[in-house]
Nucleic acid binder design. Structure first.
Lengths: 259, 259
DNA sequence: CGACTCTTTGAGAGGAATCAATGAGCGTGG
DNA sequence: CCACGCTCATTGATTCCTCTCAAAGAGTCG
Protein backbone atom coordinates (compact mmCIF):
# COMPACT_ATOMS: atom_id res chain seq x y z
CA UNK A 1 0.00 0.00 0.00
CA UNK A 2 2.75 2.40 -0.76
CA UNK A 3 1.21 5.67 -1.68
CA UNK A 4 3.38 6.53 -4.59
CA UNK A 5 2.79 6.28 -8.32
CA UNK A 6 -0.39 4.85 -9.66
CA UNK A 7 -1.86 4.78 -6.22
CA UNK A 8 -5.46 5.49 -5.74
CA UNK A 9 -7.26 7.46 -3.09
CA UNK A 10 -9.39 4.43 -2.36
CA UNK A 11 -6.36 2.38 -1.39
CA UNK A 12 -6.30 3.42 2.21
CA UNK A 13 -9.87 2.30 2.75
CA UNK A 14 -9.55 -0.88 0.78
CA UNK A 15 -6.39 -1.77 2.65
CA UNK A 16 -8.05 -1.06 5.94
CA UNK A 17 -11.13 -3.12 5.28
CA UNK A 18 -9.14 -5.87 3.62
CA UNK A 19 -7.25 -6.38 6.80
CA UNK A 20 -10.36 -7.91 8.17
CA UNK A 21 -12.82 -8.56 5.38
CA UNK A 22 -12.34 -9.96 1.91
CA UNK A 23 -13.73 -7.51 -0.58
CA UNK A 24 -14.70 -8.64 -4.05
CA UNK A 25 -13.40 -6.86 -7.13
CA UNK A 26 -16.76 -5.27 -7.51
CA UNK A 27 -16.82 -4.04 -3.95
CA UNK A 28 -13.41 -2.51 -4.33
CA UNK A 29 -14.68 -0.72 -7.39
CA UNK A 30 -17.57 0.66 -5.41
CA UNK A 31 -15.15 2.10 -2.90
CA UNK A 32 -13.10 3.58 -5.66
CA UNK A 33 -16.17 5.20 -7.12
CA UNK A 34 -17.01 6.70 -3.76
CA UNK A 35 -13.63 8.27 -3.33
CA UNK A 36 -13.51 10.06 -6.63
CA UNK A 37 -14.85 13.40 -5.58
CA UNK A 38 -13.08 14.72 -2.58
CA UNK A 39 -13.51 17.92 -0.66
CA UNK A 40 -11.05 19.68 1.55
CA UNK A 41 -11.76 21.27 4.89
CA UNK A 42 -9.47 23.83 6.47
CA UNK A 43 -7.85 23.49 9.82
CA UNK A 44 -10.19 24.61 12.55
CA UNK A 45 -13.34 24.21 10.50
CA UNK A 46 -16.24 22.17 11.75
CA UNK A 47 -17.52 19.41 9.50
CA UNK A 48 -20.43 18.32 11.61
CA UNK A 49 -21.91 20.76 14.06
CA UNK A 50 -23.47 19.64 17.28
CA UNK A 51 -26.99 20.75 16.55
CA UNK A 52 -26.98 20.61 12.79
CA UNK A 53 -28.40 17.44 11.41
CA UNK A 54 -26.12 16.20 8.75
CA UNK A 55 -27.28 13.46 6.50
CA UNK A 56 -23.95 12.37 5.17
CA UNK A 57 -21.18 10.12 6.20
CA UNK A 58 -17.56 10.92 5.47
CA UNK A 59 -14.47 8.99 4.59
CA UNK A 60 -11.38 10.69 5.93
CA UNK A 61 -8.70 10.52 3.27
CA UNK A 62 -5.97 12.55 4.93
CA UNK A 63 -5.38 14.79 7.89
CA UNK A 64 -6.53 14.69 11.51
CA UNK A 65 -9.89 15.59 12.99
CA UNK A 66 -11.51 15.43 16.40
CA UNK A 67 -14.90 14.48 17.65
CA UNK A 68 -15.76 16.68 20.62
CA UNK A 69 -18.43 18.03 22.91
CA UNK A 70 -18.67 21.29 24.75
CA UNK A 71 -19.77 21.46 28.36
CA UNK A 72 -21.96 24.22 29.82
CA UNK A 73 -19.07 26.00 31.52
CA UNK A 74 -17.39 26.49 28.17
CA UNK A 75 -14.95 23.66 28.46
CA UNK A 76 -14.41 21.14 25.73
CA UNK A 77 -13.97 17.39 25.88
CA UNK A 78 -12.51 15.60 22.94
CA UNK A 79 -14.20 12.25 22.51
CA UNK A 80 -11.86 10.73 19.96
CA UNK A 81 -9.43 11.39 17.16
CA UNK A 82 -10.25 10.71 13.55
CA UNK A 83 -7.27 9.61 11.50
CA UNK A 84 -6.80 8.86 7.80
CA UNK A 85 -8.84 5.84 6.80
CA UNK A 86 -11.50 6.50 9.44
CA UNK A 87 -15.17 6.90 8.66
CA UNK A 88 -17.41 9.22 10.57
CA UNK A 89 -20.88 10.70 10.54
CA UNK A 90 -22.61 7.52 9.41
CA UNK A 91 -24.27 7.13 12.73
CA UNK A 92 -25.60 10.62 12.76
CA UNK A 93 -26.66 10.30 9.18
CA UNK A 94 -29.22 7.70 10.12
CA UNK A 95 -30.86 9.27 13.08
CA UNK A 96 -30.95 12.91 13.89
CA UNK A 97 -28.49 12.57 16.63
CA UNK A 98 -25.23 14.14 15.94
CA UNK A 99 -24.63 14.64 19.59
CA UNK A 100 -21.08 15.69 19.10
CA UNK A 101 -19.21 17.86 16.65
CA UNK A 102 -16.37 17.06 14.31
CA UNK A 103 -13.62 19.55 13.57
CA UNK A 104 -10.56 19.44 11.37
CA UNK A 105 -7.29 19.72 13.28
CA UNK A 106 -5.22 19.96 10.14
CA UNK A 107 -6.35 20.61 6.59
CA UNK A 108 -8.17 17.43 5.69
CA UNK A 109 -9.50 15.71 2.61
CA UNK A 110 -12.79 13.87 2.96
CA UNK A 111 -15.20 12.08 0.70
CA UNK A 112 -18.81 12.82 1.40
CA UNK A 113 -21.34 10.04 1.23
CA UNK A 114 -25.05 10.86 1.19
CA UNK A 115 -27.12 8.69 3.52
CA UNK A 116 -29.16 7.23 0.64
CA UNK A 117 -25.98 6.12 -1.02
CA UNK A 118 -24.84 4.28 2.06
CA UNK A 119 -28.16 2.56 2.43
CA UNK A 120 -28.09 1.56 -1.20
CA UNK A 121 -24.60 0.16 -0.98
CA UNK A 122 -25.25 -1.72 2.20
CA UNK A 123 -28.28 -3.33 0.68
CA UNK A 124 -26.35 -4.55 -2.31
CA UNK A 125 -22.98 -5.46 -0.91
CA UNK A 126 -22.89 -7.63 2.13
CA UNK A 127 -19.21 -7.20 2.74
CA UNK A 128 -19.38 -3.44 2.63
CA UNK A 129 -22.15 -3.49 5.12
CA UNK A 130 -20.03 -5.75 7.26
CA UNK A 131 -17.10 -3.39 6.87
CA UNK A 132 -19.22 -0.59 8.21
CA UNK A 133 -20.23 -2.66 11.18
CA UNK A 134 -16.62 -3.49 11.75
CA UNK A 135 -15.69 0.18 11.68
CA UNK A 136 -18.31 0.86 14.30
CA UNK A 137 -17.02 -1.92 16.52
CA UNK A 138 -13.54 -0.51 16.18
CA UNK A 139 -14.74 2.91 17.21
CA UNK A 140 -16.51 1.46 20.19
CA UNK A 141 -13.31 -0.22 21.36
CA UNK A 142 -11.46 3.05 21.07
CA UNK A 143 -14.08 4.87 23.11
CA UNK A 144 -13.95 2.19 25.79
CA UNK A 145 -10.19 2.62 25.96
CA UNK A 146 -10.63 6.35 26.34
CA UNK A 147 -13.02 5.78 29.23
CA UNK A 148 -10.51 3.59 31.02
CA UNK A 149 -7.79 6.12 30.39
CA UNK A 150 -9.83 8.92 31.93
CA UNK A 151 -11.26 6.91 34.76
CA UNK A 152 -8.37 4.88 36.02
CA UNK A 153 -5.08 6.44 35.00
CA UNK A 154 -3.06 9.43 36.12
CA UNK A 155 -1.71 12.16 33.90
CA UNK A 156 1.54 10.40 33.07
CA UNK A 157 -0.22 7.19 32.14
CA UNK A 158 -2.91 8.96 30.15
CA UNK A 159 -0.43 10.81 28.01
CA UNK A 160 1.86 7.89 27.38
CA UNK A 161 -1.06 5.60 26.71
CA UNK A 162 -2.60 7.99 24.20
CA UNK A 163 0.67 8.50 22.37
CA UNK A 164 1.04 4.75 22.05
CA UNK A 165 -2.49 4.34 20.76
CA UNK A 166 -1.94 7.00 18.14
CA UNK A 167 1.31 5.40 17.03
CA UNK A 168 -0.47 2.14 16.70
CA UNK A 169 -3.44 3.49 14.79
CA UNK A 170 -1.25 5.47 12.43
CA UNK A 171 0.87 2.44 11.73
CA UNK A 172 -2.21 0.55 10.62
CA UNK A 173 -2.63 3.05 7.80
CA UNK A 174 1.05 3.51 7.03
CA UNK A 175 1.25 6.97 8.49
CA UNK A 176 3.86 6.26 11.09
CA UNK A 177 7.33 4.77 11.25
CA UNK A 178 8.16 2.01 13.65
CA UNK A 179 8.30 4.41 16.55
CA UNK A 180 7.77 7.93 15.32
CA UNK A 181 5.10 10.04 13.73
CA UNK A 182 3.87 13.51 13.06
CA UNK A 183 1.71 14.68 15.94
CA UNK A 184 -0.24 17.79 14.96
CA UNK A 185 -1.64 18.39 18.43
CA UNK A 186 -1.18 21.40 20.64
CA UNK A 187 -0.93 20.91 24.34
CA UNK A 188 -4.40 22.38 24.62
CA UNK A 189 -5.80 19.61 22.42
CA UNK A 190 -4.03 17.02 24.52
CA UNK A 191 -5.45 18.61 27.65
CA UNK A 192 -8.98 18.58 26.28
CA UNK A 193 -8.58 14.97 25.28
CA UNK A 194 -7.13 13.72 28.54
CA UNK A 195 -9.22 15.75 30.95
CA UNK A 196 -6.19 17.69 32.17
CA UNK A 197 -5.14 21.33 32.27
CA UNK A 198 -2.74 22.67 29.69
CA UNK A 199 -0.18 23.41 32.33
CA UNK A 200 -0.26 19.90 33.63
CA UNK A 201 0.05 18.43 30.16
CA UNK A 202 3.14 20.53 29.66
CA UNK A 203 4.72 19.29 32.87
CA UNK A 204 3.81 15.71 32.20
CA UNK A 205 5.25 15.90 28.72
CA UNK A 206 8.46 17.12 30.28
CA UNK A 207 8.48 14.20 32.63
CA UNK A 208 8.09 11.82 29.71
CA UNK A 209 11.04 13.48 28.04
CA UNK A 210 13.13 13.43 31.18
CA UNK A 211 12.38 9.76 31.60
CA UNK A 212 13.68 9.20 28.07
CA UNK A 213 10.33 7.82 27.06
CA UNK A 214 9.75 10.20 24.19
CA UNK A 215 11.30 12.92 22.08
CA UNK A 216 9.03 15.70 20.90
CA UNK A 217 10.05 18.82 19.08
CA UNK A 218 7.35 21.50 19.30
CA UNK A 219 8.67 22.99 16.08
CA UNK A 220 8.54 20.05 13.77
CA UNK A 221 5.82 18.27 15.73
CA UNK A 222 7.70 15.07 15.24
CA UNK A 223 7.17 12.58 18.03
CA UNK A 224 9.49 9.69 18.67
CA UNK A 225 8.79 7.03 21.22
CA UNK A 226 12.13 5.95 22.56
CA UNK A 227 11.16 2.90 24.51
CA UNK A 228 7.88 1.37 23.52
CA UNK A 229 8.17 -1.56 25.87
CA UNK A 230 8.94 0.52 28.92
CA UNK A 231 6.25 3.04 28.09
CA UNK A 232 3.63 0.37 27.46
CA UNK A 233 4.51 -1.24 30.75
CA UNK A 234 4.49 2.04 32.62
CA UNK A 235 1.15 3.21 31.22
CA UNK A 236 -0.69 -0.08 31.08
CA UNK A 237 -0.98 -0.03 27.32
CA UNK A 238 -2.31 -3.26 25.92
CA UNK A 239 -1.48 -3.50 22.29
CA UNK A 240 -3.92 -6.30 21.74
CA UNK A 241 -6.93 -4.05 21.96
CA UNK A 242 -6.01 -2.52 18.64
CA UNK A 243 -4.36 -5.58 17.19
CA UNK A 244 -7.75 -7.13 17.08
CA UNK A 245 -8.88 -4.18 15.08
CA UNK A 246 -6.17 -4.52 12.52
CA UNK A 247 -5.17 -7.51 10.55
CA UNK A 248 -5.58 -10.70 12.51
CA UNK A 249 -3.63 -12.73 10.01
CA UNK A 250 -0.42 -10.81 9.89
CA UNK A 251 1.68 -9.34 12.62
CA UNK A 252 1.33 -5.59 13.10
CA UNK A 253 4.99 -5.06 12.32
CA UNK A 254 4.46 -6.03 8.72
CA UNK A 255 2.01 -3.26 8.25
CA UNK A 256 4.60 -0.65 9.04
CA UNK A 257 6.11 0.68 5.91
CA UNK A 258 8.08 3.73 5.12
CA UNK A 259 6.01 6.80 5.45
CA UNK B 1 -39.71 -8.60 37.39
CA UNK B 2 -41.76 -10.30 34.71
CA UNK B 3 -45.16 -8.81 34.38
CA UNK B 4 -47.91 -11.33 34.62
CA UNK B 5 -51.25 -10.73 32.99
CA UNK B 6 -51.24 -11.18 29.27
CA UNK B 7 -48.06 -9.22 28.91
CA UNK B 8 -45.22 -10.61 26.96
CA UNK B 9 -41.51 -10.66 27.56
CA UNK B 10 -40.98 -9.15 24.13
CA UNK B 11 -42.92 -6.05 25.06
CA UNK B 12 -40.01 -4.15 26.50
CA UNK B 13 -38.02 -4.54 23.31
CA UNK B 14 -40.89 -3.85 20.99
CA UNK B 15 -41.79 -0.76 22.97
CA UNK B 16 -38.23 0.42 22.92
CA UNK B 17 -37.74 -0.02 19.20
CA UNK B 18 -41.16 1.32 18.43
CA UNK B 19 -40.24 4.59 20.00
CA UNK B 20 -38.06 5.13 17.00
CA UNK B 21 -38.89 2.61 14.33
CA UNK B 22 -42.17 1.26 13.03
CA UNK B 23 -42.10 -2.50 13.25
CA UNK B 24 -44.38 -4.61 11.15
CA UNK B 25 -46.56 -7.28 12.69
CA UNK B 26 -44.21 -9.85 11.34
CA UNK B 27 -41.19 -8.16 12.83
CA UNK B 28 -42.84 -7.98 16.20
CA UNK B 29 -43.48 -11.68 15.95
CA UNK B 30 -39.84 -12.29 15.24
CA UNK B 31 -38.92 -10.47 18.40
CA UNK B 32 -41.46 -12.46 20.34
CA UNK B 33 -39.99 -15.65 19.01
CA UNK B 34 -36.55 -14.57 20.08
CA UNK B 35 -37.58 -13.85 23.61
CA UNK B 36 -39.21 -17.17 24.30
CA UNK B 37 -36.33 -19.01 25.85
CA UNK B 38 -34.72 -16.99 28.56
CA UNK B 39 -31.84 -17.77 30.81
CA UNK B 40 -31.02 -16.29 34.18
CA UNK B 41 -27.63 -15.22 35.41
CA UNK B 42 -26.86 -14.74 39.05
CA UNK B 43 -25.60 -11.58 40.60
CA UNK B 44 -21.85 -11.30 40.23
CA UNK B 45 -21.61 -13.77 37.37
CA UNK B 46 -19.86 -12.83 34.15
CA UNK B 47 -21.80 -13.26 30.95
CA UNK B 48 -19.07 -12.31 28.54
CA UNK B 49 -15.48 -12.69 29.59
CA UNK B 50 -12.78 -10.42 28.35
CA UNK B 51 -10.77 -12.98 26.45
CA UNK B 52 -13.43 -15.50 25.64
CA UNK B 53 -14.89 -15.09 22.21
CA UNK B 54 -18.59 -15.29 22.53
CA UNK B 55 -20.62 -15.70 19.43
CA UNK B 56 -23.93 -14.60 20.79
CA UNK B 57 -25.76 -11.41 21.39
CA UNK B 58 -28.06 -10.95 24.35
CA UNK B 59 -31.29 -9.15 25.01
CA UNK B 60 -31.46 -8.00 28.60
CA UNK B 61 -34.94 -8.66 29.85
CA UNK B 62 -34.56 -7.63 33.46
CA UNK B 63 -31.94 -6.68 35.99
CA UNK B 64 -28.78 -4.59 35.82
CA UNK B 65 -25.41 -5.46 34.34
CA UNK B 66 -22.13 -3.67 33.74
CA UNK B 67 -19.67 -3.62 30.95
CA UNK B 68 -16.19 -3.25 32.42
CA UNK B 69 -12.47 -3.56 31.90
CA UNK B 70 -9.72 -4.33 34.33
CA UNK B 71 -6.48 -2.39 34.36
CA UNK B 72 -3.05 -3.93 35.01
CA UNK B 73 -2.83 -2.67 38.58
CA UNK B 74 -5.96 -4.59 39.46
CA UNK B 75 -8.35 -1.69 39.26
CA UNK B 76 -11.60 -1.86 37.38
CA UNK B 77 -13.27 0.67 35.16
CA UNK B 78 -16.92 0.31 34.38
CA UNK B 79 -17.59 1.36 30.82
CA UNK B 80 -21.36 1.46 30.93
CA UNK B 81 -24.47 0.13 32.56
CA UNK B 82 -26.79 -2.31 30.83
CA UNK B 83 -30.42 -1.85 31.79
CA UNK B 84 -33.59 -3.76 30.91
CA UNK B 85 -34.31 -3.46 27.21
CA UNK B 86 -30.65 -3.10 26.30
CA UNK B 87 -28.89 -5.36 23.86
CA UNK B 88 -25.28 -6.35 24.23
CA UNK B 89 -22.68 -8.62 22.80
CA UNK B 90 -23.77 -8.22 19.19
CA UNK B 91 -20.61 -6.37 18.35
CA UNK B 92 -18.42 -9.02 19.81
CA UNK B 93 -20.48 -11.71 18.18
CA UNK B 94 -19.45 -10.54 14.75
CA UNK B 95 -15.75 -10.14 15.22
CA UNK B 96 -13.58 -11.77 17.79
CA UNK B 97 -13.21 -8.68 19.80
CA UNK B 98 -14.95 -8.73 23.07
CA UNK B 99 -12.51 -6.33 24.57
CA UNK B 100 -14.53 -5.87 27.69
CA UNK B 101 -16.46 -8.08 30.04
CA UNK B 102 -20.09 -8.07 31.05
CA UNK B 103 -21.20 -8.95 34.54
CA UNK B 104 -24.59 -9.17 36.20
CA UNK B 105 -25.05 -6.71 39.06
CA UNK B 106 -28.36 -8.19 40.07
CA UNK B 107 -29.90 -11.48 39.07
CA UNK B 108 -30.76 -10.93 35.42
CA UNK B 109 -32.82 -12.56 32.74
CA UNK B 110 -31.39 -12.53 29.22
CA UNK B 111 -32.30 -13.99 25.87
CA UNK B 112 -29.39 -15.40 23.99
CA UNK B 113 -29.15 -14.87 20.25
CA UNK B 114 -26.64 -16.85 18.21
CA UNK B 115 -24.68 -14.78 15.74
CA UNK B 116 -26.07 -16.66 12.74
CA UNK B 117 -29.55 -15.89 13.90
CA UNK B 118 -28.81 -12.19 14.04
CA UNK B 119 -27.31 -12.18 10.58
CA UNK B 120 -30.29 -14.10 9.26
CA UNK B 121 -32.78 -11.73 10.81
CA UNK B 122 -30.98 -8.64 9.66
CA UNK B 123 -30.95 -9.95 6.14
CA UNK B 124 -34.65 -10.53 6.10
CA UNK B 125 -36.05 -7.69 8.12
CA UNK B 126 -34.91 -4.23 7.25
CA UNK B 127 -36.43 -2.57 10.26
CA UNK B 128 -34.88 -4.99 12.70
CA UNK B 129 -31.52 -4.33 11.15
CA UNK B 130 -32.21 -0.64 11.53
CA UNK B 131 -33.22 -1.16 15.13
CA UNK B 132 -29.88 -2.77 15.79
CA UNK B 133 -28.06 0.11 14.19
CA UNK B 134 -30.10 2.46 16.28
CA UNK B 135 -29.21 0.57 19.45
CA UNK B 136 -25.55 0.92 18.56
CA UNK B 137 -25.90 4.64 17.97
CA UNK B 138 -27.60 4.96 21.31
CA UNK B 139 -24.80 3.11 23.01
CA UNK B 140 -22.24 5.31 21.34
CA UNK B 141 -23.99 8.43 22.63
CA UNK B 142 -23.96 7.01 26.14
CA UNK B 143 -20.24 6.26 25.94
CA UNK B 144 -19.53 9.76 24.69
CA UNK B 145 -21.44 11.16 27.65
CA UNK B 146 -19.39 8.99 29.97
CA UNK B 147 -16.20 10.35 28.46
CA UNK B 148 -17.31 13.92 29.03
CA UNK B 149 -18.32 13.06 32.55
CA UNK B 150 -14.92 11.61 33.36
CA UNK B 151 -12.91 14.19 31.50
CA UNK B 152 -14.55 17.46 32.37
CA UNK B 153 -16.56 17.13 35.54
CA UNK B 154 -15.76 16.94 39.23
CA UNK B 155 -16.99 14.31 41.65
CA UNK B 156 -20.19 16.12 42.54
CA UNK B 157 -21.11 16.68 38.92
CA UNK B 158 -20.20 13.16 37.88
CA UNK B 159 -22.41 11.59 40.50
CA UNK B 160 -25.39 13.85 39.97
CA UNK B 161 -25.07 13.56 36.23
CA UNK B 162 -24.96 9.76 36.33
CA UNK B 163 -27.95 9.53 38.63
CA UNK B 164 -29.91 11.71 36.24
CA UNK B 165 -28.92 9.63 33.26
CA UNK B 166 -29.98 6.45 34.99
CA UNK B 167 -33.32 7.96 35.96
CA UNK B 168 -33.83 8.97 32.39
CA UNK B 169 -32.87 5.64 30.88
CA UNK B 170 -34.99 3.71 33.35
CA UNK B 171 -37.98 5.90 32.63
CA UNK B 172 -37.72 5.02 28.96
CA UNK B 173 -38.41 1.40 29.86
CA UNK B 174 -40.90 2.08 32.63
CA UNK B 175 -38.58 1.07 35.41
CA UNK B 176 -38.59 4.37 37.25
CA UNK B 177 -41.11 6.77 38.67
CA UNK B 178 -41.07 10.43 37.77
CA UNK B 179 -38.16 11.06 40.07
CA UNK B 180 -37.28 7.88 41.88
CA UNK B 181 -35.97 4.44 41.17
CA UNK B 182 -34.30 1.39 42.58
CA UNK B 183 -30.54 1.80 42.41
CA UNK B 184 -28.82 -1.54 42.99
CA UNK B 185 -25.33 -0.07 43.07
CA UNK B 186 -22.83 -0.19 45.87
CA UNK B 187 -20.58 2.79 46.41
CA UNK B 188 -17.77 0.68 45.04
CA UNK B 189 -19.61 0.26 41.75
CA UNK B 190 -20.23 3.98 41.59
CA UNK B 191 -16.57 4.61 42.29
CA UNK B 192 -15.45 2.26 39.53
CA UNK B 193 -17.84 3.90 37.14
CA UNK B 194 -16.93 7.47 37.90
CA UNK B 195 -13.20 7.09 38.31
CA UNK B 196 -13.33 7.99 41.99
CA UNK B 197 -12.43 6.29 45.25
CA UNK B 198 -15.10 4.67 47.37
CA UNK B 199 -14.44 7.09 50.17
CA UNK B 200 -14.93 10.07 47.95
CA UNK B 201 -18.13 8.69 46.49
CA UNK B 202 -19.44 8.33 50.01
CA UNK B 203 -18.64 11.93 50.86
CA UNK B 204 -20.01 13.25 47.62
CA UNK B 205 -23.22 11.31 48.10
CA UNK B 206 -23.57 12.93 51.47
CA UNK B 207 -23.07 16.35 49.95
CA UNK B 208 -25.84 15.62 47.48
CA UNK B 209 -28.06 14.66 50.38
CA UNK B 210 -27.11 17.70 52.40
CA UNK B 211 -27.86 19.89 49.42
CA UNK B 212 -31.32 18.34 49.28
CA UNK B 213 -30.63 17.10 45.79
CA UNK B 214 -31.32 13.46 46.50
CA UNK B 215 -32.58 10.99 49.06
CA UNK B 216 -30.95 7.59 49.15
CA UNK B 217 -31.52 4.89 51.66
CA UNK B 218 -28.69 2.33 51.66
CA UNK B 219 -31.11 -0.25 53.01
CA UNK B 220 -33.87 -0.14 50.49
CA UNK B 221 -31.64 1.15 47.71
CA UNK B 222 -34.38 3.52 46.72
CA UNK B 223 -33.13 6.73 45.16
CA UNK B 224 -35.23 9.83 44.92
CA UNK B 225 -34.12 12.91 43.07
CA UNK B 226 -35.57 15.83 44.92
CA UNK B 227 -34.89 18.63 42.50
CA UNK B 228 -34.29 17.53 38.97
CA UNK B 229 -34.00 21.01 37.58
CA UNK B 230 -31.45 22.20 40.13
CA UNK B 231 -29.44 19.03 39.83
CA UNK B 232 -29.42 19.13 36.03
CA UNK B 233 -28.29 22.72 36.15
CA UNK B 234 -25.64 22.03 38.77
CA UNK B 235 -24.19 19.01 36.98
CA UNK B 236 -24.54 20.15 33.39
CA UNK B 237 -26.97 17.42 32.52
CA UNK B 238 -28.47 17.86 29.09
CA UNK B 239 -31.60 15.83 28.85
CA UNK B 240 -31.70 16.15 25.09
CA UNK B 241 -28.87 13.73 24.58
CA UNK B 242 -31.11 10.91 25.62
CA UNK B 243 -34.35 12.43 24.43
CA UNK B 244 -33.10 12.00 20.95
CA UNK B 245 -32.59 8.37 21.68
CA UNK B 246 -36.12 7.67 22.69
CA UNK B 247 -38.29 10.29 21.12
CA UNK B 248 -40.91 8.88 18.75
CA UNK B 249 -41.60 12.22 17.16
CA UNK B 250 -38.61 12.01 14.92
CA UNK B 251 -38.69 9.86 11.87
CA UNK B 252 -35.86 7.60 10.87
CA UNK B 253 -34.31 7.86 7.49
CA UNK B 254 -33.49 4.93 5.33
CA UNK B 255 -32.38 1.52 6.29
CA UNK B 256 -28.73 0.85 6.42
CA UNK B 257 -26.24 -1.67 7.39
CA UNK B 258 -27.63 -5.10 7.74
CA UNK B 259 -25.25 -7.29 9.60
C1' DC C 1 -22.03 -14.65 67.48
C1' DG C 2 -18.24 -14.34 64.38
C1' DA C 3 -17.20 -13.44 59.34
C1' DC C 4 -18.52 -10.69 55.52
C1' DT C 5 -19.71 -6.89 52.93
C1' DC C 6 -20.93 -2.25 52.66
C1' DT C 7 -21.08 2.41 54.65
C1' DT C 8 -19.27 6.18 57.20
C1' DT C 9 -15.72 9.34 59.26
C1' DG C 10 -11.19 11.25 60.30
C1' DA C 11 -6.51 12.68 59.16
C1' DG C 12 -2.80 13.43 56.19
C1' DA C 13 -0.58 13.21 51.56
C1' DG C 14 -0.39 14.28 46.89
C1' DG C 15 -1.80 14.98 42.20
C1' DA C 16 -3.69 18.32 39.34
C1' DA C 17 -6.00 22.93 38.91
C1' DT C 18 -5.63 27.79 39.00
C1' DC C 19 -3.38 32.16 38.88
C1' DA C 20 0.27 34.67 36.99
C1' DA C 21 3.89 35.83 33.99
C1' DT C 22 7.64 35.13 30.62
C1' DG C 23 9.41 33.42 26.27
C1' DA C 24 9.31 31.80 21.48
C1' DG C 25 7.68 31.67 16.83
C1' DC C 26 4.87 33.85 13.14
C1' DG C 27 2.21 36.71 10.28
C1' DT C 28 0.74 41.38 9.22
C1' DG C 29 0.98 46.09 8.58
C1' DG C 30 3.00 50.62 9.13
C1' DC D 1 12.46 46.06 8.38
C1' DC D 2 10.84 46.09 12.78
C1' DA D 3 6.97 46.47 16.00
C1' DC D 4 2.67 44.75 17.47
C1' DG D 5 -0.54 41.12 18.23
C1' DC D 6 -1.49 36.39 18.37
C1' DT D 7 -0.96 31.60 19.53
C1' DC D 8 1.50 28.18 21.82
C1' DA D 9 4.98 26.47 25.21
C1' DT D 10 7.08 26.99 29.78
C1' DT D 11 7.68 27.71 34.66
C1' DG D 12 6.73 29.21 39.48
C1' DA D 13 3.64 29.61 43.43
C1' DT D 14 -0.44 28.47 45.69
C1' DT D 15 -4.79 26.26 46.37
C1' DC D 16 -7.84 22.45 46.53
C1' DC D 17 -9.89 18.31 45.05
C1' DT D 18 -9.40 13.59 45.53
C1' DC D 19 -6.68 9.63 47.16
C1' DT D 20 -4.77 6.66 50.61
C1' DC D 21 -4.50 4.89 55.11
C1' DA D 22 -7.02 3.69 59.11
C1' DA D 23 -10.76 2.39 61.85
C1' DA D 24 -15.27 2.06 63.44
C1' DG D 25 -20.60 1.33 62.67
C1' DA D 26 -24.24 -1.52 60.55
C1' DG D 27 -26.70 -5.02 58.34
C1' DT D 28 -26.62 -9.95 56.76
C1' DC D 29 -25.87 -14.84 56.92
C1' DG D 30 -25.01 -19.38 58.53
Amino acid sequence: MADNTGSNSADIFIAKFSSYIDLSEQEQEVIEALTQNSMTVDEGQDIILESEKSSSAYLLQSGWAIRYKVVPDGGRQIISFLLPGDIFGFRESLFDLSDDSVQALTPIIVHRLPAEKIAEICDSFTNLSLALTWARAREHAILAEQIVRLGRRNAYERLGHLLLELLHRLQLVDKAGSSEYYLPLTQEILADTLGLSIVHVNRTLRKLRNDKMIELDPKTRRLRILNKEALSERTGYDQSFLDQLGDPSRSPQEAIGSD
